[in-house]
């Protein structure tokens, strides 16, 4: 059990640092800005308490906010993502017999399940982030293109990370 807890803490730290110092430095054009830190929230255990899920998502969002000078923006989107997570799990199809500490990932959940789960939540998260960032409607279409491009990119990176770290059976 402690090992799983440490795994989650490590994921928090590694993904926050990777977001701030790698993914935020990706410079292709004004459109590209993948947000991979949401993977931390996506991979929290199925049986996590509602309050803990929201609190951890809030802390993750706030950490990213502090580095990006956008207090509240990532926190708001992350908490909303956490709030929608149980619903999306039900929508995509809940696993019946979940063990304690079991969490969504490619190996256990299957590629199609995990992809659908990721795309839906990442899209909703990015939708909030990019519209909050612009905060007006006169750039509506351009912002929507940004949401689509970055949803695709974030999902791609998340899937790649999944296959890199979770494709083989461990233990």
């Amino acid at each position: 059990m402690n090992k799983k807890l440490i795994g989650n803490i490590a994921r928090f730290v590694v993904l926050a640092l990777a977001q701030v110092f790698i993914f935020n430095k990706v410079m292709v054009s004004g459109y590209v800005n993948p947000m991979v830190y949401v993977l931390f929230i996506l991979m929290l255990p199925y049986d996590i308490k509602g309050f803990q899920l929201l609190l951890l998502a809030f802390l993750m969002g706030l950490t990213i906010d502090l580095f990006m000078h956008t207090p509240g923006m990532h926190a708001l989107a992350s908490v909303t993502l956490a709030f929608l997570r149980p619903g999306v799990i039900r929508l995509v199809g809940k696993k019946d017999d979940v063990e304690p500490w079991q969490y969504p990932n490619v190996r256990d959940s299957g590629a199609a399940w995990f992809l659908a789960y990721t795309v839906i939540l990442v899209f909703l998260h990015h939708l909030m982030i990019f519209y909050l960032e612009v905060f007006r409607l006169d750039e509506f279409l351009r912002t929507f293109v940004k949401v689509l491009i970055n949803t695709a990119l974030s999902t791609l990176i998340i899937m790649m990370l999944q296959y890199l770290f979770y494709s083989r059976k461990v233990e």
């Binding site: 509602g50 309050f51 929201l54 609190l55 809030f58 969002g61 906010d65 207090p71 509240g72 923006m73 926190a75 708001l76 908490v79 909303t80 956490a82 709030f83 149980p86 909050l132």
Partner: peptide, 21 residues
């Protein structure tokens, strides 16, 4: 409705941060 309740609390905190900053 505690899940919704806690969500609303965090939402208000985030909005306050966003608005005041």
């Amino acid at each position: 409705y505690q899940f919704l309740f806690f969500y609303l609390i965090f939402l208000v905190i985030s909005f306050t941060l966003l608005y005041n900053n």
